[in-house]
């Protein structure tokens, strides 16, 4: 199949290619992302869908690392503490940066960051900590700059992380959900999802001093079981390639109630649950 047919093909279905697939031999086309040229022919270097804008041919890969956009809500892990900045792993090609000037200090006071703040940066975030943040800007080299200047952003506590495929988490108005089963879920667009015990917003605001605390609250066995169930539901959606939204998680959760939390990931049960969820999602 040649690119000349692509218009015809587009009407039927997208042109799917694998690495090394000959896209066109016509020298008038330019090669874009996801392609390479050899002897004036253009080949795909990834598996994905061919996209053409005028004379530019690129391939959009099916599977790729997270690519940030300004305004994305993400979950990241601090990997390095530097001078006036933290390096944050966000499941992207390179680590993102969180500047000391882009965080809220305990107490929420808006003031200039002093030298003493620089010296105690590890009391805010240290290596391994998980942060809930928003993408503020890009640097010249493509690295993301994050900020946590809002009461809902900051250090994550009282739960556990699930890693999923970034493309399955769609960008939406809200990425913080309090599910009816009493679990809070933070869906980072970068594929890191934080599942934790529900803490009412009023308590969070009342304890503004504790935003950098490293202590969990008491979590009962019942709550742990629910968190584990929600985690397994999210893993299931990820492995079966279903979009991960608050709705799909709730549907999976409700469908799974007939099974023990640890059984959800059994192959047969998982396939069955996924079918139920897909059917329900299609109904709406």
């Amino acid at each position: 199949m040649d690119i000349d047919n692509i218009e015809k093909v587009k009407q039927e279905s997208a042109l799917l290619v694998t690495p090394g697939y000959l896209i066109t031999q016509d020298p008038e086309f330019m090669r874009g992302h996801g392609t390479f040229a050899e002897d004036s022919a253009i080949y795909s270097s990834v598996s994905g869908v061919v996209e053409r804008i005028n004379k530019l041919i690129s391939v959009r890969p099916f599977k790729q690392r997270y690519q940030g956009e300004i305004g994305d809500i993400i979950v990241g892990r601090i990997t390095e503490v530097g001078s006036k900045r933290w390096k944050v792993d966000v499941n992207s090609r390179q680590d993102a940066v969180l500047l000391l000037s882009s965080i809220n200090l305990p107490g929420g006071i808006q003031r200039r960051k002093s030298e003493s703040d620089e010296l105690q940066m590890r009391t805010f975030f240290s290596e391994g900590d998980l942060v809930f943040a928003e993408v503020q800007n890009y640097f010249n080299d493509g690295a993301l700059s994050l900020h946590t200047r809002s009461i809902q952003y900051g250090k994550l506590r009282n739960g556990t992380i699930v890693k999923v495929f970034p493309k399955l988490v769609p960008r939406s108005r809200s990425h913080f959900h309090s599910l009816p089963c009493g679990v809070d879920v933070v869906m980072g667009v970068n594929g890191y999802i934080w599942v934790s015990k529900h803490v009412p917003q009023s308590t969070v605001e009342a304890n503004a001093e504790e935003i950098y605390s490293n202590k969990n609250e008491k979590i009962s066995t019942q709550e742990r079981e629910t968190i584990a169930r929600v985690c397994n539901c999210i893993t299931l959606l990820d492995r079966l390639f279903i979009k991960i939204t608050d709705t799909s998680v709730i549907y999976t959760y409700e469908a799974s109630l007939g099974h023990a939390a640890k059984e959800i990931l059994n192959h047969d049960i998982a396939a069955d649950l996924a079918d139920q969820v897909k059917a329900r999602l299609n109904d709406h």
């Binding site: 892990r77 601090i78 990997t79 792993d89 680590d95 290596e127 391994g128 900590d129 998980l130 250090k155 994550l156 506590r157 009282n158 739960g159 556990t160 992380i161 490293n214 202590k215 969990n216 979590i219």
Partner: peptide
């Protein structure tokens, strides 16, 4: 890129 890091909170969650 940080598969071998764990925050104190996660550690506590797993241990408890």
């Amino acid at each position: 890129m940080s598969t071998l890091l764990l925050s104190p909170v996660e550690r506590d969650y797993i241990t408890k």
